[in-house]
Amino acid sequence: MTAVTPLDSIHKKGLFGNHHEKNESDLIKISEIKNLTIVQVVHYKNSKTQLSNLQIDGLNFPLKSPKVSSNKETRIIWSAPNTWLVISSKENITKFIIEKCDSDNFAVTNISHSRAVIQIKGTKAMNILKKGCPLNFHEFEKDNSAGTVFHGINIIVDFVSNEPNTFNLFTLRSFGESFYHHISDASLEFGYVGV
């Protein structure tokens, strides 16, 4: 994919903030996740298709918030009743979803180009999110996701891993740069590495 990524002009690599006299492995790592395929799948209310029989990349659709179905390459996020986001590093996932989710029962929309995706990783990653997000992170576990706000910007938080804490943060592409400023500003206190 040769498209310009949403944070192409703003994301910088290197050490920033309060990183002095700290081990680089202890710092927060901020990166832009590129080339993800993001597909919104909506199951029509009147559809008679059973979701329990349906799998995408070997994963079932989670039936309620905040569970995420995941494997190494693909994650299925519950985003609303009968609505999911399938997020995958597989390029052909859209074709696969369209084959499985027929247009009589599902609306399938590729929204890959309309989202900016920031990944924050590190032991202090949760502290960064707590600065601007009202979500109760004490009850937020690995493989959970939630639609919420960060300093007024609508985002989706996806808790990818807890070794160390890793979050993928999705926002609308047009909010990407502003959101990146908020995240990087919140990370200065701990010191961060732009990866």
């Binding site: 309620k64 009743p81 009202p134 979500l135 939630a146 639609g147 919420t148």
Partner: peptide, 11 residues
Amino acid sequence: PYCGNRSQNEF
């Protein structure tokens, strides 16, 4: 009713 307890900021 779908997501559980959340802050008023989200509503």
